[in-house]
């Protein structure tokens, strides 16, 4: 019953969010200086007559006022039709589905790696507060936090793909092979660098946060009492520290999906990895309004779901919330 109420509330909030977001996105796209017809024609510019252009614009309904266009898009979107992507010439839903599958492998690999690595580094640093190890981890994390994703991606490319030639320079499959036909090993090989980029960027935040929480836990009254009971440092961390920092760490991990998504846009662009992030950039640069709108809605749902899961997990795991205040 409580769960049902939770879901209904979240869904209502999501609906409001999506409506507001689609309006804002549509307004921005209509103000964009990119002419979708020009972007669509591209290199064939000289071979298309002004009359033909006018026909395309007419057919796409570009001459109607933005509000009318928005309402038309909205009406179709409500029926589940997000339109057809003008650059991929496929239904928007199909494009997003394909692209997201590619991104999902990338993002989940980065998500798990950054979570595990960040948490471990945070515990090691926080458990040895003030030690050389702690200083190294902090220095590492601050440096990473100040590192732009694309710069790190380029750096990794130069080191591992250009100089060492361990990893491919781009894409999701070897040249001449369709991504769908690549073997699992080939896919992993192409996934390594983009995933490494994303996870290294994600580590900093989680490590610093975990370190801070663990230090706070080790300075708490319950840690003092446990020490008085003869608990040693790692016993303290194992028995009480992890228990008390796991929850905020999990929440942070789910809430970090938005940053992961943003990071994947940059990383995919540098590695020309055919994921959703790259499609977003293409859609923006080439005035593919239906695809761009579709991606905006999809990413909003994705991030929202992550945050909702974080909320839900808190309710399920924390006994203070799960069992209510009643004694």
């Amino acid at each position: 019953m409580k769960l049902l109420l939770f879901v209904v509330k979240k869904l209502a909030r999501l609906a409001v969010l999506l409506i507001a977001l689609s309006m804002a996105a549509f307004a921005l796209v209509s103000l964009s200086p990119i002419d979708p017809v020009n972007a669509y024609i591209g290199a064939d510019m000289l071979r298309v007559s002004p009359e033909q252009r006018a026909q395309i614009a007419e057919r796409w309904g570009l001459n109607d006022p933005p509000v009318q266009r928005y309402l038309r898009w909205m009406g179709q979107a409500l029926q589940g039709d997000l339109g057809t992507s003008s650059i991929y010439r496929q239904p928007v839903i199909t494009v997003i589905g394909q692209r997201f599958t590619a991104s999902l492998a990338l993002m989940s690999a980065a998500w798990v790696l950054s979570g595990v690595l960040g948490f471990t580094l945070g515990v090691l640093a926080g458990g040895n507060e003030g030690s050389p190890l702690d200083r190294v981890v902090r220095w590492f994390a601050y440096t990473l936090a100040a590192t732009p994703t694309f710069w790190l991606a380029l750096l990794l490319l130069i080191v591992f793909s250009v100089t060492l030639r361990w990893t491919p320079i781009c894409c999701a499959a070897p040249p001449g092979v369709l991504p769908e036909e690549a073997t699992l090993l080939q896919r992993i090989h192409h996934l390594m660098l983009p995933a490494a980029t994303l996870s290294i960027i994600g580590v900093a935040n989680i490590a610093l946060h975990t370190r801070q929480k663990l230090i706070a836990a080790l300075h708490s009254d319950y840690a003092l009492f446990a020490t008085a009971q003869g608990e040693k440092r790692w016993g303290l961390i194992w028995q009480h520290g992890l228990r008390n920092i796991a929850l905020p760490a999990i929440t942070l991990q789910f809430a970090s999906l938005s940053e992961l998504f943003g990071g994947s846009v940059l990383a995919e662009q540098v590695f020309t990895y055919p994921g959703l992030g790259q499609a977003t950039v293409q859609a923006g640069l080439r005035g593919d309004v239906p695809l761009l709108m579709g991606i905006v809605l999809f990413s909003a749902i994705f991030v929202f779901t992550g945050n909702a899961l974080a909320d839900l997990i808190y309710h399920v795991i924390d006994p203070r919330i799960r069992l209510g205040g009643g004694a």
């Binding site: 009254d221 319950y222 009492f225 009480h240 228990r243 008390n244 929850l247 924390d318 006994p319 203070r320």
Partner: peptide, 12 residues
């Protein structure tokens, strides 16, 4: 040691 309050127990 017997501490002051239940606040010295691990809340979780």
């Amino acid at each position: 040691l017997i501490p002051q309050s239940v606040g010295f127990l691990d809340p979780l």
